[in-house]
Design a protein around this nucleic acid. Structure first.
Lengths: 210, 210
DNA sequence: GTCTATACTGTGATAGAC
DNA sequence: GTCTATCACAGTATAGAC
């Protein structure tokens, strides 16, 4: 469950290094995304101006805009990068342990990533408007997430672990909303135990005696 | 369940010298709040500048700032106003029908107030930071809401309507987070049936056969 | 007390020279 | 691809007119 291992320390004047298998432009872009991810995870996104972000990374704000076009597009790129990092690990965890057991575990992990969760929640709210640049991205990611939860619920049902009579479409959305809702609450009050709450929800869904 | 029915009649803060018309009269703070509420409910908050808000109301942006001090303070005042309007009605509904039946009903009502829900969710996210001007307000409102839910859960338990073995503190928070999470999802996709989802959650909490 | 006029700083974004 | 202006607009502050 390790993420964001590659710490870029020091004060890089330009984004250096990284694998050379990309074209020059894309390599720069990828390095900027990685650096921005670390800045956001640590300091959040909302309250940082493009200029501050650029300074923390070690580049100019116009360079950032050149690569991403807008502040929100940068945010979107960073979240896509996160999904690239964490998605496979999360999928593996769920495949191994089953959804009911894995979800609380995922929340336990999320609780170690305050900046990223804040980032995620921020985008969720800002991209509400259909004409927001990241609206489609958020919608699609959300759709994929719910679909994946639904699929895993079916597996749990086949294994006899689920309570009878559940509408899986509804329940998949319920779980997703619970994750986002409890993250929102946790961001304002980090004494909230996110894993315990998802555990409680999962227990409600579990077949009696399972 | 009527709200925002225009109760601009009385201006309780000051002796009514001249009747306030919508064009260019004098405006008490309460009238500004009411007018701002209507603007926010219709057009949201985030994307409107103070100048745009003022124009929609029919005043100047500096007049708004004179009364409220900042944009966020205006938002806070409007949400407090909303709670004043809706709080009692909601409490009455819950007292009459019990929490399990009332919550889906509240969601049905909320689904008619897109702008207000958007406002609420926006503030929830923006006030995450401890040094945000509305942070304490949001925390306190949230605390009170959870406490109220918890109290109503106890009533349901006494009436034998609740499943056994529930941790009421946890469940109260679970319900609150579900409400906020499903509202967040609904804001991005209004084909989501918020009431149905809360109904499903309530069914999970209900004692078998109740 | 209520509002207007004006200006300041910082924001995201754009255009064009290198 | 990057940097140097420069943009329009944001939120805010203050001084003073009614």
């Amino acid at each position: 469950m390790t993420l964001v291992d590659d710490a870029r320390s020091g004060t890089p004047d330009r984004p250096p290094r990284r694998r050379a298998s990309y074209a020059n432009g894309e390599r720069t872009r990828a390095a900027l995304v990685q650096a921005a991810f670390e800045v956001f995870a640590e300091q959040g996104f909302q309250r940082l101006s493009i200029r501050q972000i650029a300074e923390a990374i070690g580049t100019s704000h116009t360079a950032l805009l050149h690569h991403f076009g807008s502040k929100d597009a940068l945010l979107e790129a960073v979240l896509a990068h996160r999904e690239e990092l964490e998605g496979p690990e999360r999928a593996e965890l769920i495949a191994e342990r089953g959804l009911l057991d894995a979800v609380p575990e995922v929340m336990r992990h999320n609780a170690t990533e305050r900046g990223v969760i804040q980032l995620d929640t921020t985008l969720l709210v800002e991209a509400m408007h259909p004409d927001h640049i990241a609206h489609d991205f958020v919608r699609e990611r959300d759709r994929a997430f719910v679909a994946s939860v639904r699929e895993q619920l079916e597996r749990e049902r086949e294994l006899g672990r689920l309570r009878d009579g559940l509408d899986l479409d509804l329940v998949a959305r319920l779980i997703t909303a619970q994750v986002e809702g409890i993250q929102l609450a946790w961001l304002a009050d980090d004494s909230i135990d996110m894993a315990a709450h998802l555990e409680a929800l999962m227990d409600l869904l579990r077949a009696p005696g399972a």
